[in-house]
Design a protein around this nucleic acid. Structure first.
Length: 324
DNA sequence: ATGGTTTTTACTGCGTC
DNA sequence: GACGCGGTAAAAACCAT
């Protein structure tokens, strides 16, 4: 019986075991405990689990020489600016100098100057025209827009960007919409960061359908080997509590209920949102700050029936805990 | 596509304000 | 009588295979 009922949301368990087995290794993500993989192409160490960039620019991009005056700098410099993730092309595309000088520093003829001016114009156009770059530019914009609409913090956006960038590099885009992948990246990033947003919430700010988001999300997760744990019910609690204007006591109690439930193993196979909603409801009863089931179901986007079922289970689990 | 599970929908009965 | 709550059955959604 448990074999089948614990299928859905129980990946958590396997991963907990995995985490323990990798704990003695040195390469562990400080954020989520996941395995780290070094991406030598970009000189980054990235967490395979959450996409967190742990170490950037392991190769010092700065010059290895020192220059004592500008003339010396001109002579010694062989390289361009350091690369940065903040620009859509990492600052690596061609740049035509603004000075009207040739390679030897001599002034250009007026005819040459005009030519260079035209080249600059076209180069600028081409730089953002390259399909992947445009793609990325747009996607990052979308991610930003959706993230702020959902009130997600900066680090989530960054993680989402990293995920999207990886998807792009692995050629996951063809056949899928930019919007879809961007939304999926954000969805994944939000879950990693422990501030999950439901698919429905994502749907309200995204231009793509729920089904497509879900489909793309699964695809991206699989292809990039992002290991995402099932959302922890507790992470929904604060939001529900504040949406309902309840006290901190309610929140504390709700968390406690959930932790008990976890120990009793009641939570396996059940929707985390439902559990969280039920915990909040149950907690509001226990602390005499009554809210109705329909109110909770409203903010949690879960049916009242589910709340009823869950909260019975929660209370039962509470009973069977010895210390209470 | 299928089968097994969870969640939702819709409806009903009960007690209270 | 409206409302909150509880329960049930059937439909829908979901997920792994």
């Amino acid at each position: 019986m448990t074999d089948t009922t614990t299928r859905r949301y129980t990946r958590e368990r396997d991963e907990e075991e995995n985490e323990q087995s990798t704990e003695d290794e040195t390469l562990v993500c400080p954020e989520c405990g996941g395995k780290l993989a070094s991406d030598s192409e970009h000189g980054e160490t990235v967490c395979k689990e959450c996409g967190l960039v742990v170490e950037e620019d392991e190769i010092d991009p700065g010059p290895e020489w020192r220059a004592f005056d500008s003339k010396e700098k001109d002579e010694k410099s062989r390289v361009g600016a350091p690369t940065t993730n903040m620009m859509h092309d990492k600052g690596l595309s061609t740049n035509i100098g603004w000075q009207d000088k040739d390679a030897y520093g001599n002034a250009l003829s007026s005819r040459q100057r005009e030519k260079m001016q035209r080249l600059r114009t076209w180069n600028e156009r081409f730089r953002t025209r390259d399909s992947k770059e445009r793609n990325l530019k747009q996607a990052l914009g979308e991610i930003d827009r959706m993230a702020s609409a959902l009130g997600l913090p900066e680090n989530v956006r960054e993680t989402a960007s990293v995920i999207y960038r990886r998807a792009l590099e692995e050629d996951l885009l063809p056949g899928r919409s930019i919007e879809g992948v961007a939304t999926a990246s954000l969805y994944a990033a939000a879950r990693k960061a422990g501030t999950p947003r439901s698919l429905d919430e994502l749907t309200t700010v995204s231009r793509v359908e729920k089904d497509e988001i879900a489909r793309t999300y699964r695809y991206v997760v699989r292809e990039l080997n992002l290991e995402i744990k099932p959302a922890d019910p507790e992470s929904y609690v604060p939001r529900f509590v504040s949406d309902l204007d309840l006290s901190e006591e309610v929140e504390r109690r709700a968390r406690q209920l959930l932790q008990n439930a976890k120990q009793e193993g009641v939570h396996s196979g059940k929707s985390p949102v439902g559990l969280a909603a039920a915990a909040v409801y149950a907690s509001s009863l226990l602390t005499n700050e009554k809210v109705t089931q329909s109110e909770v179901s409203e903010v949690a986007n879960i049916s009242e029936v589910t709340i009823r079922n869950r909260y019975h289970e929660l209370l039962e689990a509470e009973e069977s805990v010895p210390g209470l």
